[in-house]
């Protein structure tokens, strides 16, 4: 799930300066779960826009705003409302915002900041576990990713900042290498400690990432 949160109202107000008519777009998937761009938040946004004296020409919750073709189709179906707007206010992650901007020449205003790929601990509480590096080492690290969970992304054990199993960068957070060590010990295997891990190949996922399923 892509974790996102709304930009501050102050920042949004500045972004909306001079834009009196807006078409508001939410996303039915991640932004809905994050309560940053679901139906309820889109409705609240329209209420807030009204208090600023701005008109909402229409709104839509796209079923996966990251789906470029689907976003295009939804915009075409609501062509008139979209055309009437001075700008499109998008309450979706950065990927969703770009699905919209690639389907229109109109000004697109993103209402959210996109944070990370997150797991859900419980409702409203998200944790980053994977950084999408394209070079997965989890099979050796007892299913705990050091690239993500170690503040320095170290690959060969903890730094000198580990103390009582906690991370140097944030004492509230467990040292990933301590967790890996403890779990491998329970599993009675050496795992990643059996070798020196070579420098990571950051070229495996070229920027921007692209992937095509082979037939």
């Amino acid at each position: 799930m892509i974790i996102s949160e709304q930009k501050s109202r102050e920042e949004l107000q500045e972004l909306l300066e001079g834009k009196d008519r807006l078409f508001v777009i939410g996303c039915a998937v991640c932004a809905t779960v994050c309560k940053s761009g679901g139906e309820e938040e889109v409705f609240r946004m329209q209420e807030w826009l009204a208090t600023l004296g701005k008109e909402t020409t229409g709104s839509v919750i796209i079923d996966e705003a990251c789906h470029i073709m689907r976003a295009g189709r939804d915009l075409r179906q609501l062509k008139q409302q979209v055309e009437e707007a001075d700008a499109l206010l998008v309450m979706a992650c950065g990927a969703g915002i770009q699905s919209i901007s690639s389907n229109t020449d109109k000004r697109v205003i993103g209402a959210l900041n996109t944070l990370f790929l997150g797991n859900i601990r419980r409702f409203g509480q998200y944790e980053e576990k994977c950084s999408l590096c394209g070079d997965c080492i989890l099979n050796e690290t007892a299913g705990i990713c050091p690239v993500t969970n170690c503040a320095k992304g170290l690959l060969n054990g903890p730094c000198g900042g580990m103390e009582e199993g906690k991370c140097e960068a944030d004492r509230e957070i467990d040292c990933a290498w301590h967790l890996i060590y403890e779990r491998l010990k329970k599993q009675n295997r050496k795992g990643v400690f059996a070798r020196t891990v070579p420098p990571k190949n950051w070229g495996k996922v070229p920027k921007p990432g692209r992937h095509k399923i082979k037939p």
Binding site: L155, N156, P198, P199, W202
Partner: peptide, 9 residues
């Protein structure tokens, strides 16, 4: 922060 390499690498 970079940490492209770790101290062992």
């Amino acid at each position: 922060s970079v940490f492209d390499l770790d101290s062992i690498q």
